[in-house]
Amino acid sequence: MEHKTILLVEDNPDDIALTLRAFRKNNIRNEVVVAHDGVEALDYLFGEGSYAGRDPGITPEMILLDLKLPRIDGLGVLKRLCAHERTRKLPVIVLTSSEEERDIASSYEFGANSYIRKPVDFDQFTETLRQIGSYWLTLNIGPPQAERA
């Protein structure tokens, strides 16, 4: 299980810290790659920019995507992922504070697999992440790696 990477796209360092803490608390030991904005996330996924040289064939097991991001926002990221055959089928869980219907609708439209609102209560937040982890990382069978290539 250790080889399964989680891409966390989040600009808020507090949220990053809390998310990582929550993973830790829930015994989710996967490698977590943090991208601080949309550009960085895309660079990572496509092996470009600061991640130039990284094999884009190795894809994360799941992407936790915040919507409100500097430079390219979450929806922008989704759009790009959706546009590429290679990235289209990556499980993307939108994890955001927004409850805007517009955001929810757009997210699903651009291929998000799930939409979860971050609770303010850290206990609930931890519980949410536990559930996400157990579902997407344990129960869910992702698309074959070969197809991803």
């Binding site: 808020n12 507090d14 809390l18 971050k118 609770p119 303010v120 850290f122 937040f125």
Partner: peptide
């Protein structure tokens, strides 16, 4: 919500 979450977290 984000700062609140931080405070609580």
């Amino acid at each position: 919500r984000a700062p609140l979450r931080s405070i609580d977290g």
